[in-house]
């Protein structure tokens, strides 16, 4: 008798769980409707794709890379006429996602995010993969690095900074995201070309470095300028130089390193790659769709909203870039003592 009562209790609590669930399902209803519009999009004659595609992201939900992949998935599914799922598989500096993609068939239905940080990871051998394990499909966007100081800093231009550092080795507190990563690499290139000594203070993220710069805990930050967009626009933070090739349309007043006589053009790009062995015609099909996405006004708006530089490279161009970057970065890491001693 008692047991029946208990079971009734259990059932009733499960029913409530299902009720909560239906509320949730109700609000995700609009999503299924967008999926429907996707499937009514013009179907291509070629076989691929005939089933849903998965985009794997190696960073956590909500990161810039994740937002990039979600936006890309949203627009690509309309081109390919198949739904695209986005899965975040974090862990091991991207190694977990790479291992997962490698365990899936090379049929073009699993597409992995990729960024310029991959070339650091490969150069550093912190992931058990090589560039040849993947086919680089396309790069879409890139962000530069910039040297930033506070409004009240006496450093007015890049020359002041370099002069000061030459006179006072390690004299300024310089920091930015990560140790042995992109921004430190840019500073290292500048050190090489201008010949000065500096100590790097690594932070958890670009935002962390910006708050420390604003709070006066460090003197100079090397950051992706969009991390401090508000401060740059309001004048609370001044950018001394930026690592783009030509002046960035988003920061037209900031000189490039190149203009200042230091040939440093470095971009942290984002794109997609697939497992090696994926047939060339599938990659071509993907590239066709991606080319259309890149011209889509929705995409352009997203790029502007997020202050992303367009950085379109096809499979061949991107593969060459990756090879070159790995070599350059290995040299930097060796010199900085970041490589594992064997």
């Amino acid at each position: 008798m008692k047991r029946i009562v208990q079971v009734r209790k259990l059932v009733s609590s499960l029913v409530v769980m299902l009720l909560l669930l239906s509320v949730l399902a109700g609000c995700s209803g609009s999503k299924t409707s967008t999926d429907k519009t996707a499937s009514t999009a013009p179907q291509q004659k070629s076989g691929y794709p005939t089933k849903p595609i998965t985009f794997v992201v190696w960073s956590s939900a909500g990161s810039p890379l994740d937002l990039f992949m979600r936006k890309l998935a949203d627009l690509t599914k309309k081109e390919l006429g198949q739904p695209i799922m986005v899965e975040n598989r974090t862990g091991g500096n991207g190694a977990a996602a790479m291992a997962y993609v490698n365990s899936q068939p090379a049929d073009g239905y699993t597409v992995l995010s990729t960024t310029g940080s991959l070339t650091f990871a490969i150069a550093k051998e912190s992931v058990p993969f090589k560039a040849d394990d993947f086919i680089f499909v396309k790069s879409f966007q890139a962000e530069p690095s910039a040297i930033a100081v506070r409004k009240d800093s006496p450093l007015k231009a890049l020359e002041n900074f370099i002069d000061y550092m030459k006179k006072h080795p390690n004299g300024l507190k310089i920091g930015g995201y990560a140790s042995g990563g992109f921004h430190q690499y840019v500073l290292y290139r500048l050190q090489q070309k201008a010949n000065f000594e500096a100590t790097w203070i690594p932070f958890e993220g670009g935002a962390d470095a910006v708050t420390n710069l604003l709070g006066g805990h460090i003197d100079v930050a090397v950051i992706t300028p969009s991390t401090a967009l508000n401060q740059v626009q309001s004048g609370a933070i001044r950018l001394l130089a930026i690592s783009t090739d030509k002046r960035s349309p988003y920061f037209p007043d900031v000189p490039t390193f190149k203009e200042k006589g230091y040939d440093i053009v470095e971009m942290l790009w984002r794109g997609v790659m697939v497992k090696k062995g994926t047939p060339a015609e599938l990659i071509q099909r993907l590239n066709q769709a991606f080319d259309k996405v890149a011209q889509n006004p929705d995409w352009k708006k997203y790029m502007t909203d997020y202050k992303q530089e367009e950085y379109l490279l096809d499979s061949q161009g991107l593969t060459e870039l990756v090879k070159r970057e790995i070599a350059d970065r290995r040299a930097f890491l060796e010199k900085g003592g970041f490589l594992k001693k064997k």
Partner: peptide, 13 residues
Amino acid sequence: SATLALLLPVTFG
């Protein structure tokens, strides 16, 4: 955070 990222596309309209 995962839920927010999941629902983000839903909120576009």
